[in-house]
Nucleic acid binder design. Sequence first.
RNA 1: CGGGGCGUAGCGCAGCUUGGUAGCGCGCACGGUUCGGGACCGUGAAGUCGGAGGUUCAAAUCCUCUCGCCCCGACCA
Length: 558
Amino acid sequence: MRFSRIFIPTLREAPADAEAISHILMLRAGYVRQLASGLYIYLPLGWKVMTKINAIIKEEMDAIGAQEISMPVLHPAEIWQQTGRWYEIGDEMFRLKDRGDREMCLGMTHEEIMTWLASREIRSYRDLPQIWYQVQTKLRDEARPKSGILRTREFIMKDSYSFDASEEGLAENYRLHANAYHRIYERCGLRFMMVESDPGMMGGGMSHEFMAPSPAGEDEVALCDKCGYSANVELALSIPLKLEEKDWERQEVHTPEKRTVQEVSNFLKLPPSYFIKSILVIAEKGPVLALVRGDQEIHEKKLAKVIGSHRPAQKAEVKEILGVEAGFIGPVGQKVRLVADESLKEGSYVSGANKPHYHLRGIRAGRDFTPEWHDIHTAKAGDLCVKCGSALHVERVIEIGNIFKLGTKYSTPLKAFFLDENGQEKPIIMGSYGIGPARIAAAAVEQNNDKDGIVWPKSIAPFDVELLPLNMSDPKTIETAEGLYTGLRESGLDVLMDDRNERAGVKFKDADLIGIPVQVIIGEKNLKEGLVEIKDRRTKESVKVKVDDVIEKVRSLP
RNA sequence: CGGGGCGUAGCGCAGCUUGGUAGCGCGCACGGUUCGGGACCGUGAAGUCGGAGGUUCAAAUCCUCUCGCCCCGACCA
């Protein structure tokens, strides 16, 4: 492709509302433009990248026997009502009515529709297993779209669904998908990891997420270098560091106006870890007092798994329910439901005395209060691994894919049954598996850039090579560039030639911004000796080679 | 949904406090000089100042409402 004929609107300055590096660079380099919040246009370069990523995904899906199909984006409400998700999912689902006043929605995922298809077409164990997939647009009315194409309201997703007669079959398809995903991300040149994750509203059993480390990510994972334990912090288990045992008598201490753990900690000259943080929340079934060690944070999702959805209590509610103002509350003597983090099982602690301006020192679980025990603290760096006991670290990541074992969550309500060898009717056992190609692209940019722009991994770069004839008024330069342009293309490479009548500096700047991995620089002086320069975008190192050797040299690059 | 910020030419911004003919840089068009890391000179086109209402002789500027976008949080198949 000739630069003069492809639309690449590069910008010298980034639009002020872009913050994430990938967002800034993709705007500046002319890959994408924003239509509205969470809605993006892919320009020619951006779409080429997406096409390459999708091609890799499709190859690997086909390789595990998955079959590509295509489903509508517009769905009748009825099917979603049958699984209950029509009611469970809130504002995130785009809903509308057709001219006949029938309720419809825009597809945010396709478990329902895939299962509907299976329910009509699959009758026998002989029809199983199946893997169906599509690369198709999803719509979700996100509460807060952000970071350019990382979180949008409309996005392309590769979603696949497995259908099996047995749990063993599901396990095999789950494993096949995990392997395929590894290959996909490797081929896309990403640093990534697979971690345990919370199935959330997808339901079903096991699930894993594929995560690309990046400060731009929205998730955090806890990792153990020693044994390989890795999990989203939403469910990561960890053991907070043990405390030196205190041999306190149970005793009230006067703590005037000292309310927060930090204030009392400073006042009593005791580390926060010797305190019990008591937080009152209001769940659907009533108030719950949640307890964690003073140096820990409660993880809302972990707590929600125990007590259901909940909200923090307001100050007036604390006074009314616990009989004491916030700041001096504690578990001892309270009648409300107590849910405590397991790290509090042992040891002697300080908590609020349920009496204004007093705290209680020397309280022990089991003797002074009896809570339900759960892991409700947020795993943090330095905590110990529950599997091997060595220190965990925590990393910020971009979620680039996930895999779920669904079991019969969708097949049962949608009556997707098959007859087994014995003529018994059974629900199909399902899995679902998603990849966001735009997130792969964004993660690739987040992980591969420098002060001058993007440095694409070779496999997903919009072009393989960029030719830079520097002086377009020099006939010899043009002749050489045209020759190489034809030759490189004939050798199977995708070539961008900057044939614009621009100064060298402009071409260099744009080439670095756009980030094509290999640059072939055709300058007048080198040409007099029959040489051109081949430059690596990542290292900025270049070698001079004879014009005749360029094609072979470029093709031999890793 | 809660908190914060911002809407002035394609992009980046100034002007608003203290109301009085809408500006700067980049980009864009044309002419000339230049030509290996975002050139220079000259000429020029381009803006309902997000929108509506109000105050005023007069509103980008003051007031009210509203829409949009970004960030933090909540939420997130």
